[in-house]
């Protein structure tokens, strides 16, 4: 029954172990680019001055090669009342809400990817297709993506959109902060450049925060005292000012802990030098080996 001696068992185990260590995907598995630079850029959205003209939507579509359609359609304000989300046809949209401070007016709010400081999509992506660039932009690399949509599961704001209608080469689409053609070259994002009201301000994130706090301090009657994005999920590059509680503007209560905060320590504990798997392997091997010895004695 037992053709092997214990010595042989150990020898084979050692040899095979060395072999498998060689092919383990340890070196191949690298962490993606995920830079939280002190000088990272951001956009401050002051929704109290936004008039909902949707020039940002048009500029965004033109910049990203998406069909703009008839410009007259953008005048139709009834559309704004129904909540829309960014999708594969529009990477940013404006939604309209009642204004509690002035019933004659509305609160208009542009939504798009928040460009988190600790992005869940970057942490989650199985092939590292997402990255957080030095200027703060969270971008998606088409050449890596396998279309698993785990980024969409992970995103606290449910932003990444997937081209469900494409049988081949479906894309994950979201705001890229105009990284490729604009912000990586020191230019303004298309939406910021298009905004006629200065409701969107592009700048270094820490400066935007100072500015936002200053605005609240200067005109406390106009603002709800909260900068959405300052601490949400550990901070985001896009920051929002509003005249009312963000909960009534469909902004989710996501807490202040970074989304990858719960899973990454677990992952790292598991994979740090492969200690837990190797220890489990050793334990099971030990049990098997000892049992083998007992069995051999019984048989003798």
């Amino acid at each position: 029954m037992n053709t092997q001696s214990r010595r042989e068992f150990l020898k084979t185990a050692g040899l095979l172990g060395a072999g498998i260590a060689g092919i383990k995907p340890k070196e191949a598995a690298a962490s993606p680019v995920n830079i939280v630079s002190d000088d990272r850029m951001g956009v401050l959205v002051d929704s109290t001055v936004c008039i909902g003209c949707r020039q940002c939507e048009i500029a965004c579509k033109e910049e990203h090669g998406l069909p703009v359609g008839s410009l007259d359609d953008y005048m139709d304000r009834t559309l704004l009342a129904e909540m829309r989300r960014p999708d594969t046809t529009a990477l940013t949209v404006i939604n309209e809400y009642p204004n509690p401070k002035n019933p004659d007016q509305h609160t208009d709010l542009k939504v798009q990817c928040m460009h988190c400081d600790h992005p869940a999509c970057v942490s989650a992506c199985i092939v590292g297709a997402f990255s957080k660039q030095e200027n703060g932009a969270v971008i998606w690399d088409e050449s890596r993506c396998i279309g698993c949509r785990y980024c969409m599961v992970a995103c606290p704001f449910q932003v990444p959109a997937f081209e469900f209608d494409k049988a081949l080469e479906p894309k994950i689409m979201k705001c890229d902060l105009c990284y490729d053609n604009r912000t990586s070259k020191g230019k303004l994002p298309a939406c910021v450049e298009a905004c006629p009201q200065n409701a969107l301000i592009f700048g270094k994130r820490y400066e935007l925060l100072q500015l936002a706090h200053q605005k609240i301090q200067d005109r406390p009657q106009s603002y709800f005292d909260h900068i959405y994005g300052e601490h949400e999920v550990g901070g985001t590059s896009w920051l929002y000012l509003s005249n009312q509680d963000f909960a009534s503007l469909d902004f989710p209560d996501v807490g202040t802990e970074p989304m990858p905060g719960a899973t990454e320590p677990l992952q790292h504990a598991l994979f740090k030098f492969f200690i837990p798997p190797v220890a489990l392997y050793g334990l099971l091997g030990g049990i098997m080996w000892l049992g083998k010895g007992n069995k051999a004695e019984e048989e003798e």
Binding site: S31, I126, Q267
Partner: peptide
């Protein structure tokens, strides 16, 4: 998978922080 033909990316481009990768 939307891009099932890219499944071979997983072992060579794997992201070590991704639970799905593990």
């Amino acid at each position: 998978l939307g891009r099932y033909y890219n499944i071979w990316h997983v072992p060579i481009m794997g992201n070590s922080t991704s639970v799905l990768f593990e």
